[in-house]
Design a protein around this nucleic acid. Structure first.
Lengths: 128, 128
DNA sequence: CCCGATGCCTTGTCGCGCAAGGTATCGGGT
DNA sequence: ACCCGATACCTTGCGCGACAAGGCATCGGG
């Protein structure tokens, strides 16, 4: 029984809380990347993994449904592109409504970060 | 049809994304407050609403189950206190395991914030 | 010839946040 | 006398995003 079925202790717990914390940030991240220029799904996957020190490990099962949601709500537009290529790509572009929404998301995010910092800093002082 | 059933447009959407973004932060906030000194549930509710500019609007239906979860996992300890009072209070104290977990949570949180800042800042430059 | 990378997708499960409801005591306003 | 808000705890049921796990197809290198 030296074959340990468990990875490092608590790693499952870490994964869980990381998942919960990152909730909602994927949408912000994706929309931000698309705010710069159009991308296709698989490309987004790599961009998001390379940026931000790999903190945002977006999974396929997360990204594709998210893109469909954003498309349904009119925040992004999808276009298939083949162009002599065997594996066609689905490019996404942000819409004006998407930009408005992105601004909203950014505001909400920085508000949350500010609030949390205040809370944590205040307690940090007392702790000292 | 002038009677609009909807409040300000998008306010429901705002509430939704705020809820999604704040996911998981409540645990960090609660544990942080308890890291300073013991508190009872209803008190936590008020402390969390007054701190951090009201960004963390914790609801009762969120807080109480969360406290029970933290207790079950051994991160906090509960003690009933009556002391001549008609309405008894349930005080919570953080345990050593809770402190370890709190440290972990703080690390995860700042990692996420850093990652997001890098991502957003990088895109901000290009946008300019 | 197989396997990994590319490129898209789906179904089912998990777990948090919350609306909505419940119970009980106490004090102040009318 | 009565009601209502604050205090103080709790619960059930729903919504919804993240993800594991799987599927499908093509292309290139060892």
């Amino acid at each position: 029984m030296s074959e340990d079925t468990e990875a490092p202790p608590g790693s499952a717990a870490i994964a869980r809380l990381r998942r919960e914390l990152a909730r909602g940030t994927t949408e912000l991240a994706v929309l931000s990347v698309l705010g710069v220029r159009r991308r296709y799904g698989y490309e987004l996957l790599k961009v998001l993994r390379e940026t931000g020190e790999g903190v945002l490990e977006v999974k396929e099962g997360t990204l594709y449904p998210l893109l469909h949601r954003l498309e349904d709500s009119g925040h992004i537009l999808a276009t298939w592109e083949v162009e002599g290529r065997a594996r066609p790509r689905k490019y996404y572009v942000i819409t004006p409504e998407g930009r408005t929404y992105l601004t909203m998301l950014r505001t909400e995010w920085s508000g949350l970060v500010d609030g949390m910092r205040q809370l944590l800093d205040a307690l940090g002082e007392v702790r000292e």
